[in-house]
Structures are given as C-alpha cells and as structure tokens.
C-alpha cells in the first residue's frame, strides 16, 4: 500500500463568473521513504495539490471530487480538528517563505516545544531536549544557546532550517515542501536540499517536493510528476522524465532549461503560454502549443497512459489505437 494515494482529485473555486476547475482529475501516489518531485509552470496547480492534501485549501476553494488516502485511510473528508491532529504529526509542511511559517512573537524553541508536545506525550524538559537535538540535526550552530532566540535573529537560510526542524520534529510520515528553497541564495539552496534529503532518508520520511527548479528535482527526487493546466501531464522515474520524456510538453520543458554542463546555441522553445483556468481548450489542454497535435487531441482529453518507463497523458501513447492503425496500413 502506498503511503499517500491521491485519486482523481478535483479542486474547484466557485466565482461570480462560474466555477473554476483548478485541479482536474489528479492521481498519483507516494511510497514510504520516496521523494516525489512536482514540477510545472506557475499556475499549473502544484501548490493547490499540496494544500488539498494537508487540508489547507483557502476558501472558497474546495475538493469537488476524488479521494486522498494516507496509509490507506481517507483524509479528504476529515473535520478541521481531525485535520489539525494530522498536520504536524503525520504530515509536515515546509513553505517557500520561512517567515510565514514561523511566528515572530515566539522564540524558535517555544514553537518547537509546542509542536512536539502537541503531538508527542513528552514533558516540557524532554520536549526541550528533543528540540535542541532537532536544531542540531538541521545544522543550527550552538543550538542549546540559540534555542531561545526569535526568528528575526536568524538568517534566511537558518530560518528555513528551523522550519524544517518544525516540520519534522513530530516525525511525520510525509512532508510536503512547497518551493522550500526558492527564496534562498543558491549556495544556501544546496545546503537546504541536501539537509532535506538526508533527513528524509535517515527518518524514512516521504517527501512531496514542489518546485519549478528542475535542477533541484533532478538531484533530489526519485519520481517526478509534471503538471500542466491543473492535470498531471506525465509521471515517472526522474531519469526517464529528464532524459527520455514521453509527453511533448515534458520534452519541450526539459529542452527549455539551460544547463551548466553544456551550452546550446538556442534553447528549445514552446511557443505561447499555459492557458488560464477560464480558457482551457477542449481535448488535450496542451494541444494549441503541441508540435505533434492531431485531430483527436482537439476533441478528446487523454488520461495518463503507460508510455515506456513513465505514464503520459498524451494520445501518442494510446496502445489501443496504434495496432489498429497498423492493421489498416
């Protein structure tokens, strides 16, 4: 059984002009101890997917369909108080800006101890010891002395370390990290990613790592989900997604990323832009930009289909059609 199983998740925003469907039939799973990278352009639905899983969708956004299972039991239909217990204890969260996660009015120690004691039956003194251990583990120098310091007394990189400690201190089974390094300097990014990777491995934690930085994904994730216009376009092992993608969008995306290893004269370019939620085209949402579009793409919407090592939502990989064509030919 997968640790997390998201089935056909649909998220909608009722607006005056009608209902916006921001996530449309998103399905994927994360195994215990696995790092799933989630990539895609801004607005593709990455953050909403994470928010729906931890029950932090902002109203009027709501789950309009599908199911979310954590260790086999549903978590998409829980009450707010049940969700609060799951958050922190079974699912930890790390967001882009550490300042939104940390309360500026409390020392970092206070926040860690609170979180630990909310979820684990420990005395104040034991929780404090545990908090110091976590600060040491995330690499805060002189943790025992600095535990009573306030968030503003730390640098941006150190704050993100504290947030990681906060997300992991109750030893959750799953951590959702939404752009955890985007606000940080490149050399600090490397430190934070390495830290997250090591902690997840040491503690057997699964990670859903949301980022638009394919470089970070390439070296951190086991599998990758590529999102486009509220759906998963392709999902599979990181090496295949990066090197031999099956979906034309993934192919274009990978080609558009400059690399420090080798220089190309021109980057691959996907013309146009991702459609707005109000103007998702019929059929495959990528069809107006797709170099391989054919008639069926404009009418029928593809679901994820097996495509070699990955699964791709693209009619080019419809095995039921191809033999038929061959028979005609």
């Amino acid at each position: 059984m997968a640790l997390l199983d998201v089935q056909n998740l649909t998220v909608e925003f009722p607006t005056r002009r009608g209902v916006l469907r921001a996530l449309d039939g998103v399905s994927f799973s994360i195994e215990a101890g696995e790092v799933l990278g989630v990539v895609g352009e801004s607005g593709a639905g990455k953050s909403l997917t994470g928010a729906a899983i931890i029950g932090l969708l902002e109203p009027p956004g709501r789950i309009a369909g599908g199911r979310i299972l954590l260790e086999g039991s549903r978590i998409d239909d829980l009450s707010q108080s049940q969700l609060r217990r799951i958050r922190g204890r079974r699912i930890g969260a790390i967001f882009q800006d550490p300042l939104t996660t940390l309360n500026p009015l409390y020392s970092i120690g206070r926040q860690l101890i609170e979180t630990i004691r909310t979820h684990l039956k420990l005395s104040e003194a034991d929780a404090r010891k545990r908090a110091v251990r976590w600060l040491e583990e995330v690499g805060i120098p002189a943790a025992a002395q600095r535990i009573d310091a306030y968030p503003h007394e730390f640098s941006g990189g150190q704050r993100q370390r504290v947030v990681i400690a906060l997300a992991l201190c109750a030893e959750p089974a799953l951590v959702i990290a939404d752009e955890p390094t985007t606000a940080l300097d490149v050399s600090i990014q490397a430190q934070i990613i390495a830290l997250l990777k090591r902690l997840a491995r040491d503690h057997g934690t699964s990670v859903m790592l949301i980022t638009h930085d394919m470089g970070v994904i390439a070296e951190t994730a086991d599998r990758v989900a590529v999102m486009y216009a509220g759906r998963i376009a392709e999902i599979g092992p990181v090496a295949e997604i990066v090197r031999t993608p099956a979906h034309p969008y993934t192919l274009g995306l990978m080609g558009s990323i400059p690399s420090i290893e080798h220089r190309v004269e021109r980057l691959a370019q996907i013309d146009g832009a991702m459609p707005r939620l109000t103007a998702i085209p019929q059929g495959c949402a990528f069809n107006p930009r797709c170099p391989r579009v054919f008639a069926r793409c404009r009418i029928e919407r593809p679901d994820l289909l097996p495509a070699g090592a990955t699964e791709a939502a693209c009619w080019l990989h419809d095995a039921t059609i191809r033999p038929l064509r061959a028979a005609h030919g």
Partner: peptide, 8 residues
C-alpha cells in the same frame, strides 16, 4: 553547488 539537470 548549482542544481543542474545533469545532476540526477
């Protein structure tokens, strides 16, 4: 330190 596609 730079994360790069070649770094899988």
């Amino acid at each position: 330190a730079i994360p790069d596609l070649a770094m899988i």
